[in-house]
Amino acid sequence: MTEINVIVDGKQETGAVQDRTLLVHWLRDSLDKRGPKIGCDTGNCGACTVRWDGQLVKSCMVLAVQADGGTVETAASLSEEDGSLNRLQQCFKDHHALQCGYCTSGMLMTATDFLCSGEPVTEEATRRALKGNVCRCTGYHNIVRAIRAAAEETP
């Protein structure tokens, strides 16, 4: 077992992990972080998407030991400080951009990263930004609308 120290959602966390432990398993099983989900075995679905040291990654393709000394943000960090929905989350709600909710945390992380990137939020660019996140419920139409609405509303 290796000891790791990672700031997760703003809080210093210490864990003992096996070398083989994937970041997603440590976040979920040891920290009860329910944002990152597991939807595939092969890095295709994006349900486990988090930000690590400011970069968007799929936490099923990172070892927990690799994150030692770093910072990880999961979807649990997105809400406003008073616990209310942030602008993007509210747009997801307003546009019915989620159904079962299983892909939602990953979608929100990717959308957050995309909106922060400064790239133009066109229909095509939004769809391209989402291609690493699979949703089996919504058909993506409303997710794209929600993200574009969030971009328009951003002051």
């Binding site: 809400s79 709600k93 989620l98 909710g101 945390s105 929100l108």
Partner: peptide, 22 residues
């Protein structure tokens, strides 16, 4: 088109799916 009651917990990563339950 009432906003969904389910959404807040799911958007805040506070849902409880099968593998979440401690």
């Amino acid at each position: 088109p009432m906003p969904r009651k389910e959404d807040d917990r799911l958007l805040k990563a506070q849902g409880e799916f099968g593998d979440d339950t401690p």
